[in-house]
Amino acid sequence: MNATPEPLRIALALGAAGVPTLPLRQGKVPFGNCRACADGACGGRPNMKSAGPCQCPAPCHAWAAATTDRHVLTSPAWAPAWRQAVAVAYHPGGAGLTVVDLDNAAAVAWARETLPATRTVPTTRGEHWIYRGVMRSSNAVRPGVDVKSLMQYARWLGPGDGRILAVPPAVRALMVKEDTTPARGGVASSVPARATWDRTVAAGCRHTERYVRTGLERGLAMVRAHTESGAGSQAFGVARFLAAQHAQCPGPCGLDAMGEEIVAVAVLVGVPETYARRAVANGLETASERAA
């Protein structure tokens, strides 16, 4: 490419410092998978939870594509993404880091009272607290707080200020046991096997029914794929993403009905109903707050 886009300049600098990066598209989310990788057809990359053989040269699979390799970052396969990129993300776990993402003023106040001060980076609505060390990632560990490290990405917003401390016990304690999907069978729940969203509950939605159902089904498949752990966190992420797609709709869009479908699938793979409902509710609420 003749002129290096600014996001790529940032990514190359981070890569040189040992921080794996990837481009973010409009909406500040990763680029979608190519056709060969769509719907898990490629088997996934070797470094994903379900290790697979995928060696796709494109920036597919979000955090799993993050790299420090200058040749990959500047490759023809990545060039279209950099031309469209609006921001840069990085894989904290790949850089030996953990990011406590504080999404609002209340969460920041909690961190200042509870956690040891470390390097902080201002965000649009809160702060990123960066610690040295890696751990399991989980969303909605408490109101307005996500933990991003292994198998997650965080948006690069600058180097921040302060000395980076080791991950404290208080952060590791946020990983509640209920986020680990228990074995199938014996999960008591009042959730029906399938509560269905349809157009009758979305009179004010600006999207077509096909658009909404396609997005919802893809999200449900992502939750369904987490049969060992992380289904609760995935449910949170899916709820947040889907709600964000309707931020500009006059409403109603039937978000509650979508939430019920997400909860039902999470429960079917073993997430306790109480936790599933809390994760989905937090996801819907987080998206609404960001749109406000």
Rank of each mutant, 00 (worst) to 15 (best):
A183N: 09
R155P: 01
A106K: 15
E127I: 04
E178G: 07
E127W: 05
P169D: 13
H128S: 04
Q152V: 02
D39I: 15
G43S: 14
T208M: 10
W82P: 01
L157A: 06
G15P: 09
T114R: 05
K49R: 00
G160N: 12
T98Y: 10
T286G: 12
G230Q: 01
A95K: 11
A3R: 11
F31D: 13
M151P: 00
T286W: 11
P182R: 15
A17H: 06
T274I: 01
P20T: 04
A41I: 10
P116M: 10
T123A: 09
G93C: 12
T21A: 14
R136Q: 08
M258P: 06
C253Q: 13
P122D: 05
E113D: 14
A244G: 15
R210T: 12
L268F: 00
P5H: 08
R213M: 09
C42R: 15
E178V: 08
G251V: 08
W63D: 04
P182T: 08
A140H: 02
D146W: 05
Q245C: 09
Y211K: 10
A235E: 02
P182A: 12
R290D: 09
P168E: 08
M222A: 13
E285C: 07
V99M: 07
K28C: 09
R213I: 05
G237W: 03
V263M: 03
V121P: 00
P272N: 08
G43D: 13
A154K: 02
V88L: 09
D101H: 04
N33F: 05
A58P: 09
A58G: 07
P168S: 12
L8E: 05
L268D: 03
P192H: 04
F241H: 14
A291L: 04
H61R: 11
G44S: 08
P250G: 07
V108L: 08
T98K: 12
A221S: 00
M151G: 00
A105K: 04
A279G: 04
C54E: 07
H61D: 10
C37F: 14
A170L: 03
L8S: 02
Q84D: 14
G27K: 09
C60K: 00
T68K: 05
A235R: 01
P159I: 07
E209L: 07
G126A: 03
I262K: 07
M175L: 14
R218Y: 09
W197K: 14
R290H: 12
A239I: 04
A173P: 03
G32C: 09
E127G: 03
G27V: 01
N282K: 02
V191D: 10
Q245V: 08
P250K: 04
A107F: 06
L73Y: 01
A221I: 01
A170Y: 01
R45W: 06
C253M: 15
P116C: 10
D103S: 09
A64G: 02
Q26E: 14
R155A: 00
